[in-house]
Amino acid sequence: KKYKIKVYVKDKKTKKWKKIKEIEVDTKEEALEAIKKLPPNYEVKIVP
């Protein structure tokens, strides 16, 4: 079972969220580790 991490950042001009990358991992633990490495201003969604 794979997890997709969708990473969004808020556009300063439009104030809208835009997706900047998608990370695919195998476990939820890996997903949480990957999220920890991202800057705090990123919004993250984990999709099972």
Rank of each mutant, 00 (worst) to 15 (best):
K1P: 10
K1A: 11
K2D: 03
Y3K: 00
Y3P: 00
K4N: 06
K4M: 13
K4H: 07
K4C: 09
I5V: 11
I5A: 01
K6G: 06
K6I: 15
K6V: 15
V7L: 06
V7M: 06
Y8R: 00
Y8T: 00
Y8S: 01
V9M: 12
V9I: 12
V9G: 05
V9F: 08
K10R: 14
D11Q: 05
D11T: 06
D11C: 07
D11F: 04
D11E: 05
K12H: 13
K12I: 10
K12M: 09
K12D: 08
K12C: 06
K13H: 10
K13D: 08
K15V: 02
K16V: 05
K16A: 06
K16S: 04
K16N: 05
K16I: 05
K16H: 06
W17L: 05
W17Y: 09
K18F: 10
K19N: 03
K19L: 15
K19M: 12
I20M: 05
I20K: 04
I20C: 05
K21Y: 15
K21L: 14
K21G: 14
K21W: 13
K21Q: 13
K21S: 11
E22V: 09
E22R: 01
I23K: 02
I23Y: 13
I23P: 00
I23Q: 03
E24R: 06
E24G: 09
E24V: 13
V25I: 06
V25S: 03
V25K: 03
V25W: 03
D26P: 04
D26F: 10
T27E: 02
T27Q: 02
K28A: 09
E29L: 10
E29M: 11
E29P: 03
E29Y: 07
E30R: 04
E30M: 08
A31Q: 02
L32T: 07
E33C: 08
A34P: 00
A34Y: 15
A34I: 15
I35Y: 03
I35R: 04
I35D: 00
K36P: 03
K37H: 13
K37D: 11
K37M: 11
L38Q: 03
L38N: 01
L38M: 12
L38S: 01
P39K: 07
P39S: 12
P39F: 14
P39I: 07
P40N: 11
P40W: 07
P40S: 12
P40E: 07
P40K: 14
N41D: 12
N41V: 10
N41Q: 11
N41Y: 14
N41S: 14
Y42T: 08
Y42G: 03
Y42W: 13
E43A: 15
V44L: 05
K45W: 15
I46N: 01
I46C: 09
V47K: 05
V47H: 08
V47L: 08
V47M: 11
V47A: 05
P48L: 15
P48T: 14
P48V: 15
P48R: 14
